[in-house]
């Protein structure tokens, strides 16, 4: 099978870009991840033997995306990551640990139109989340990486990971409640 990097770009470039964009939510970072993936692919001596370039390239891309998220998260010391939203977290509950604002019932989106609308709101809420929280939340809830893997990749403890995921979910839930 003949395989040429320019063909990869033509045939799989958009797919890889969308895959990266869905996870990094940043156009430039997604473009860079695609470029780095193709460059890494060229340097792999077995590239011509791949029978399914898309699957293979996506595998490389996943690693590039994690590298990128790791950078986003490592740029901030853990202590700061965890204190960042403390003020906000306290707003969720009163002094006795009861909901300060009680979770309201949501309409569960049932038809296609509502589902699309719900997704749009969810996307906007993800954009409002601090980037690092969005990154770890994506690893967990989208790519279904297990906690050990996430901690290893990011160099954080399990407890830190749980707290960050909790904050991400609390923030998203609140945002959805306001806008859905």
């Amino acid at each position: 099978m003949k395989s040429n990097p320019h063909d990869w770009l033509k045939e799989h470039g958009d797919y890889l870009y969308r895959f990266a964009l869905a996870r990094l939510r940043d156009v430039h970072q997604a473009e860079d991840a695609v470029q780095e993936t193709l460059l890494a692919a060229i340097k792999n001596p077995n590239f011509a033997k791949q029978s399914s370039p898309r699957t293979w390239l996506t595998g490389i891309l996943k690693h590039k995306i994690i590298d990128c998220m790791r950078k986003q998260i490592r740029e901030t010391p853990v202590s700061e990551l965890l204190s960042e939203q403390d003020a906000n977290m306290d707003d969720f509950f009163d002094d006795t640990g009861h909901w300060a604002e009680k979770p309201q019932a949501w309409d569960v989106p049932h038809d296609a139109l509502q589902q699309t609308q719900f997704l749009k709101v969810l996307q906007r809420c993800m954009e409002r989340l601090p980037q690092k929280l969005a990154a770890i939340f994506t690893m967990r809830d989208v790519d279904e990486m297990d906690n050990d893997e996430i901690c290893k990749e990011l160099g954080i403890t399990a407890t830190n990971a749980w707290v960050m995921l909790y904050r991400a979910r609390m923030g998203l839930r609140k945002c959805l409640e306001l806008h859905w």
């Binding site: 969308r18 869905a22 996870r23 589902q115 719900f118 997704l119 969810l122 994506t138 809830d141 998203l172």
Partner: peptide
């Protein structure tokens, strides 16, 4: 619900 939709959303974008 959020977890279910997160997966759907990424798939939709991809």
């Amino acid at each position: 619900l959020i977890r279910r939709y997160m997966q759907g959303w990424q798939q939709q974008v991809t």
